[in-house]
Design a protein around this nucleic acid. Structure first.
Lengths: 239, 239
DNA sequence: AAAATAATGTTGCAAATTGCGACAATAAAA
DNA sequence: TTTTATTGTCGCAATTTGCAACATTATTTT
């Protein structure tokens, strides 16, 4: 049994019933916020990566495992942000379609077709380091522009919106873009990231001063080359 | 079947398995933060009010129902703050003791003795309006001083601490003490509430100016009487 | 009845934070 | 060599916050 198959067990045996995890995995590339989506080709359905919790597994560990299985990454910023537990989110149709598309013919009381309460997590990952890997039921796992998402299964669009809102609310006082940027970056990179997340322009000098005053950045001697202008310093988050 | 009995069904039938709700219900009285605790007299155990989710009930509605059943209050500020899902929190011993103390002899695989994942909610209620009502398994439901709590069942102490931390973090930008204070109150009452929640003294004039600048308070013509000093205005939150 | 007391409402000012413009520095292009 | 574009830094005004002083007033004390 490999890693992936554990995510989609043939029966619900060995997993907590009725409880799932959905992941909103944020990445950042070319001035765009991205999220990882699974695609079910035979059905044209898109969904957030999901996971189930083993009987003897901590909830947060299950989320971390699901994240690693989809991105190959470890030690990533991951945070619970909301539990989605409305009755109305229960709709067996899309999952039935997916399973049919995959050649399975689920019984009407198949465990995957029952009502689920789902714990939402969001993660911030380094786009350049992640290797998107589809799960057993999906044909693709790919980055999508946050402001150009396809329509998503069930209430997954709601989940994305709420995750983004939480991320914005937390940007001030929680960990910064440590995981959204590569190891080293320029002050401009960092500001663009903030502006993209917040959806608004920030004052350049104020931003720079604030970031430096926070005393969490390490300025490297090396400089960047490329454009017809003064070379910016590279920075790195202090450990 | 009355309201209370629905909280403690004889079998798990009709409820989502393995999922519970725990409530940290904050009140405020005599310059002290209080929370509601259930007591199981035969066992000397204290616990947070809890609830289960009906098969056809929204998660948030279940939390609201549990809150109303314990306090008699409606339209109360209630917020999800964390899901407690560690394996280590599973310990059937205390619940078994409670059930034995109540004259029940549960089988080893009784549904209440299995592992539960619990969604933590905190609520802010008007101390003077709440009527604490025990549930079927407990003998008492009473307010306890937050800084003089008895030792609590399972991981409930962790739940309380995390709820308080979340409340503190949210005090700046989320709804204020709307539900923790009576309909009308003085500026001093409001400041004391803030100081008690935050656990630190605040500057009087700055606090007053800030609250008034927020433009959420309505000053009433009436004044308060009582002490040997100038009478303070009464305030009320705008609708 | 007058004075003292104590908490409250308000104002003024210094310190800290933030927004914004200006200028020097410098790597590449013209 | 000059021009251009972007970055690092500084200065100043506007805003927010901490703190102290003062006027107000309901009750207590004399």
């Amino acid at each position: 049994m490999n890693n992936s198959s554990s995510l989609l067990p043939p029966s619900g045996e060995g997993f907590l019933p009725g409880l799932a995890i959905d992941l909103v995995i944020f990445g950042f590339h070319e001035n765009q916020l991205k999220i990882l989506l699974l695609e079910y080709k035979n059905t044209g359905l898109f969904a957030l990566p999901a996971g189930f919790i083993k009987n003897d597994e901590n909830l947060n560990d299950a989320a971390r495992r699901a994240l690693t299985e989809r991105t190959g990454l470890h030690d990533i910023y991951l945070e619970q942000y909301y539990v989605f537990g409305d009755v109305t989110r229960h709709d067996p149709t899309p999952l039935e379609a997916i399973m049919l598309g995959k050649g399975h013919v689920p019984s009407h009381d198949h465990w995957l077709l029952r009502r689920f309460v789902s714990v939402g997590y969001y993660a911030l990952v380094d786009f350049t380091q992640a290797v998107p890997i589809p799960d057993l039921l999906s044909d693709q796992c790919e980055w999508h522009d946050l402001n150009n998402l396809p329509s998503l299964m069930l209430d997954h669009t709601t989940m994305v919106n709420k995750a983004l809102q939480t991320l914005r609310d937390n940007l001030d006082h929680k960990l910064i873009g440590t995981n959204l940027l590569p190891e080293t970056f320029t002050m401009g990179d960092l500001q663009t990231l903030y502006e993209t997340i917040l959806g608004e322009k920030l004052n350049r000098t104020s931003f720079q001063r604030k970031m430096l005053d926070l005393n969490i950045l390490e300025r490297l001697d090396k400089k960047w080359t490329g454009g017809a202008h003064k070379a910016p310093y590279l920075y790195r988050f202090k450990r």
